[in-house]
Design a protein around this nucleic acid. Sequence first.
DNA 1: TATTGTTATACTCTATAACTATA
DNA 2: TATAGTTATAGAGTATAACAATA
Lengths: 145, 145
Amino acid sequence: MATGQDEPDADLATGLVRLARLVQDVFTRTAADHDLTAAQARLLCVLSDGPRTMSELAGVLGVEKAAMTGLIDRIERRGLVQRTTVAGDRRAWRVRLTPTGQKQALTTHEGIIGAIGLLVGGLSQAQQDRLRQAVVCITQDHQDQ
Amino acid sequence: MATGQDEPDADLATGLVRLARLVQDVFTRTAADHDLTAAQARLLCVLSDGPRTMSELAGVLGVEKAAMTGLIDRIERRGLVQRTTVAGDRRAWRVRLTPTGQKQALTTHEGIIGAIGLLVGGLSQAQQDRLRQAVVCITQDHQDQ
DNA sequence: TATTGTTATACTCTATAACTATA
DNA sequence: TATAGTTATAGAGTATAACAATA
């Protein structure tokens, strides 16, 4: 009761926390259906837009460089990405999807988008449009943080 | 581009994934400001509504019993919750917030709701109302899964 | 027999600090 | 000196499997 969790029309902030968990759970479960952790699915999604260096990935994903090393080590061991050299900087690595990784990224992405889409299937088209607009407003106003 | 991440008016499912991450990041960061992990903040929030047995907590939080043992061990060591016996069933434990834990739960909850509230501050009141309605529809249609 | 909870084990994810190699 | 990345270490969170105590 201190959290207002019982009221069906709880405040917006509480609703957003619940929605975020619901979406995150669907994301994680669908990724698992494709033999990926949530962190791995996010990584493959970023790499779908093109190769990135370790530092770039750490920046985009919001984790430390050292955490990236482990993340890439594990997913590279499975053959989904590979480290390639960077011309002109022998310290750096460029990480790219392998052909297998590209297929995996695509099917996992489709699975996740499809599963999330089911969540909003009960809303009318007009409601979905308004929701989309609101979501765009919020995420654009607070890019990354 | 395969993910449509560049379009400002990306599809609703993609927007929801982004929103969920934004909300989750704010949740995690605010919990950390209060010296709690996200899992611990969630736990305290559930316990704000009253004591629960280990099995109940595992069910509500969607984790295995064995994971609950560790989660409760760590937070009990910090004095925020305590295990008490259950009259009539000597196998079971009832977990409750300590007075310290109650204060911690309250201030953390206020901090999180406040921080999430800032995310929607840019929307008009009418937009917020419509968003709240949509969020309630989605989360009620898919309680827990 | 079924249920409640713990222990043992293993893995992923993450952080911090110290380090190497290169710029 | 500064940057890119790795290694070492530690801890949280999670799962599975085996187990003890009790119902």
